[in-house]
Design a protein around this nucleic acid. Structure first.
Lengths: 242, 242
DNA sequence: CGATACGTTGACGGAAATCAACCCCGGTGG
DNA sequence: CCACCGGGGTTGATTTCCGTCAACGTATCG
């Protein structure tokens, strides 16, 4: 049974991990004037320099935000899972400062900025949710700066895997045993500031240490405590609990 | 003549770089119930894990936000100049996920969260300003991820210097020729993920290339175009102009 | 069945860390 | 007044982590 592919299910599930929605609020979310679209893996949804008039709710699949340097190197800024609105900040920042790209085939719902502003005006709790969501976004950025700035390759990747597992669990997309492996090793390299080759070697170390295994399209976490210790992972920065 | 050391001057100047304040708004800012405090260089103003009930407006001097790893390494997350409210996000995120530290002797004004929320409720344009300010914060984080993730040491430092110069100019704290050198080479290392020793060597290259000079407590930019090119600096991510 | 994308392996080189001095300068106290 | 001290900047020798290049393996798909 494939997961449901409507926008309100994905968004409601995500918001519900933070606050209990009323029937009115659920109804208003369901009535948002969305434009659904399917995007192919690796396709750009928006580009640096764009001035979007709508934001993009991810319904199914995986997206990332990234910047590309002159010499062609790419740095991934964030990964996104169902329920995220990766370009929510474009509500208040006119021009996009990064690309928004599909990591897998994905279903997205475009929501006009005005509709989001109206929703927030009618339901202040939802406005607060959006506001807070961008603050959590920023908190994760802070942690990524630490990750690429001060951790070695082994810690970086261990930390990233812990983060992804935790975020998947928070919205009910995974259990303790692991999560869908939507990332290529090259993408992990672009997110951690490493080369794909080196990511591969680190994965071999992680497997040899009995921390993780890969297979059947999943990343399996065999030793959560060990992986968290290896990455010095502390979920506080995800601000999951109020 | 020392710069004025009252909170409303610093905050008003910063906000005015984005929007024109009315007399009412200025008056309300002046009447904020602040607690002024002087902090010594290198002193912590708040620590990771704190649950602050007030935010900190920087009136004079320089602050940074940073995280410290188990092994003692430090990663600076952001630098702050007069007019900034570095922990504004604590309005909505209960526990602080980083330290807030003085880089120089500084004067700060603590403002109770409730007073900021009230101010925003009375003056929606100021609420929007705060909201937007945290989004710009996040945008700068994104750029720092790219800086430490994908640029080499020479580019990283050139980029950082361009950013600081631009931000100083934006609030009238500097002109084209440079800005007050509030950063030790060790601090630049902690911000760029480099060792202090290597920062020193890169500075020698930057000087040899005729891009910058240091002296009399200032960093002088001798060749702005050259420095910007060296750091692939594009100010778009600072979102200075609406 | 070839095309393509992703993972894996080895050899080699280079950018930056580390370690350990040393210098310079302003402040402080005997 | 000068000796001492500490913080910041500078230098050189050595090491290490990781990038680059290039090849090869393997699975999925049209």
């Amino acid at each position: 049974v494939p997961p449901r592919a409507d926008h309100s299910h994905a968004l409601t599930r995500k918001i519900s991990s933070v606050l209990e929605l009323t029937l009115d609020e659920r109804a208003a979310i369901a009535r948002l004037p969305v434009t659904m679209r399917t995007v192919k893996s690796n396709a750009d949804i928006a580009r640096e320099g764009d001035r979007p008039s709508q934001s993009c709710l991810l319904v199914r699949g995986y997206l990332c935000r990234a910047k590309v340097l002159d010499k062609g190197k790419r740095q991934i800024i964030s990964f996104h899972i169902a329920g995220d609105i990766p370009d929510l900040q474009s509500l208040h920042l006119r021009t996009l400062d990064h690309d928004l790209t599909a990591l897998t085939e994905a279903i997205v719902a475009f929501i006009p900025h005005q509709a989001l502003l109206d929703l927030g005006a009618r339901f202040p709790r939802i406005a607060d949710y959006f506001w807070r969501e961008t603050l959590v976004d920023a908190s994760i950025f802070r942690d990524w700066i630490v990750n690429v700035g001060r951790r070695d390759a082994y810690m970086r990747i261990a930390h990233l895997l812990c983060e992804q597992a935790t975020r998947h669990k928070a919205v009910g997309l995974a259990d303790d045993s692991g999560f869908p492996l939507f990332l290529t090793q090259a993408a992990i390299g672009d997110a951690t500031g490493l080369s794909g080759v080196h990511v591969n070697r680190v994965f071999q170390q992680l497997r040899a240490a009995g921390l993780v295994s890969t297979g059947a399209g999943r990343l399996n976490i065999l030793d959560w405590a060990g992986l968290a210790a290896a990455g010095e992972f502390d979920a506080a920065y995800l601000h999951l609990a109020q």
